[in-house]
Simulated scan of single mutants.
Amino acid sequence: MTNCKRYKVAAIDLGTVSSRLVLAQVEGGAIVESSKHTEITDLGEGVDTTGRFCKAAVERVLAACRMFVDEARAFGAVCVCTTCTSAARDASNAALLLDGLRELGLKPQVIPGEVEARLTFFGVAHDFAGERIIVADSGGGSTELATGVYAPECSVFALEGTRSLDIGCRRVTERFFSALPPADGELSAAAAWSGEQFAAYFEGLPSDFEHAERLVAVGGTVTTLVALVHELEPYDSSFVHLCELSLEQVSAAIERMSVLDAEGIATLPGVQPKRAGVILAGAVVIRELMRAGGYKTLTVSENSLLAGMAATINETLDGTTPTIGWTPSLNAL
């Protein structure tokens, strides 16, 4: 790429459990330097049951975004992109959130699951250039899956099997667990429901589909599982990034948490208290994904949709066609 400039950009992603900000310096379609800020805002509270946002959840998200806007301005970002994912797709009163974001000067985009999967794959694949991988982003309301190869040196970006499934830690918790620890049969029911959907995904792939040897997972569930398994206090992102988790480790973590209430889970080393109520269900989702795909290990990435957004913003500012085929709405602060 010629005439590349370096830009300071901001990207905000509002998920079912977490609201996240990345401040990045980008150049040539890649992140040169970045910092992240995550707030657990639980936007999806009650959405699976009611189909609506509750006012308190929206207020938590807007409070986080006020902080994010201040941080982006202090950073000197030339623009910001704001995306909303699973919970906003599901909520019949999503305007409550979207109007509040516009009042903060943001231009929110509710993106479909396939765009979410492509952004995440793009953000993750920079670390696995030329390698065929399947990327799984397991969030609060959905899990996005995408298999493909990214080889920037020869301008290859090929994706297959891109899909968004309505399986996530918040959704599974609300749908199957009456309390924590789960009652008899609830854990196995959650596992069976998740496993059936993942199995249907893999079984429904074309017969000539080339299975990816490496499963790469992103999101708060898998990063928390690494912190739990290795008792990381404080959290160490450099240790977590590209760390491997085995099926046995995930299963052991589920067994450990399955006899505890939320307060007990919150005391475990590496678990954020605000994530304690949904991490057990999240771990079940990850285990069933691994089982359905036949993966004994997975690789955890600290990169995610935010990294893909930052790189895509860079391409847009440079006036090039975005690699993933989606153009973000940008606004100055």
Rank of each mutant, 00 (worst) to 15 (best):
G294Y: 06
T312G: 01
Q272F: 14
V61P: 13
E39N: 10
N331E: 08
A281T: 15
G277T: 14
L215I: 05
G140S: 05
A77N: 03
D166F: 01
V226Y: 02
D99S: 12
I313C: 08
A253H: 11
G264H: 06
E153D: 10
G140D: 03
G44H: 02
F198S: 10
G123A: 13
V216T: 01
D48F: 00
L333V: 10
G29D: 08
G28C: 07
I12H: 01
T2L: 14
N331I: 07
V78F: 07
L289M: 09
C84I: 00
T267S: 15
D184K: 05
R20W: 10
E233C: 11
P234T: 00
T312A: 08
C4K: 07
T143D: 06
A125H: 00
A158K: 07
R60I: 00
L145E: 09
A252H: 13
M1E: 14
L98M: 12
S301D: 04
A200F: 14
K107M: 15
T49W: 09
T221E: 06
L21T: 08
Y201K: 15
A217I: 09
L245D: 12
A151G: 02
L260S: 09
C4I: 14
G139P: 04
A30G: 15
V22F: 03
W326D: 05
T316Y: 15
G264M: 08
G219S: 04
E196N: 11
P269Q: 09
T223G: 11
L317R: 04
V58P: 08
M290S: 13
E131K: 09
S18T: 07
L247M: 11
H126V: 09
D166Y: 00
T143L: 06
G294L: 02
E263Q: 12
T147N: 12
L62E: 15
V218M: 01
A292H: 06
Y295W: 15
K36G: 02
C81V: 01
V149T: 10
L187Q: 05
R291Y: 11
S35V: 07
R171S: 14
G282T: 01
G140H: 01
D208A: 02
V135H: 12
A158D: 02
L333H: 02
P181Y: 12
Q197P: 13
E315R: 14
D70G: 09
G319C: 14
C169S: 03
L228Y: 10
P152A: 04
T120H: 02
T224D: 15
R256F: 14
V80I: 04
I12P: 00
F177M: 01
R175N: 12
E248P: 11
D70F: 14
D318K: 12
A266T: 05
C243Y: 15
I31P: 12
E288T: 12
L242T: 06
Q197E: 07
E213F: 04
T143M: 03
F176M: 11
L21I: 04
T50S: 10
L317P: 00
S34P: 08
V110F: 01
E315P: 00
G148R: 10
T299G: 15
L104Y: 12
G123H: 04
Q25I: 11
E116R: 06
T38R: 06
A307F: 05
A117L: 03
P273Y: 05
R256K: 10
R291C: 10
I134E: 14
E203Q: 07
G168W: 09
R291S: 00
C169I: 03
K5C: 12
A64F: 15
A281D: 11
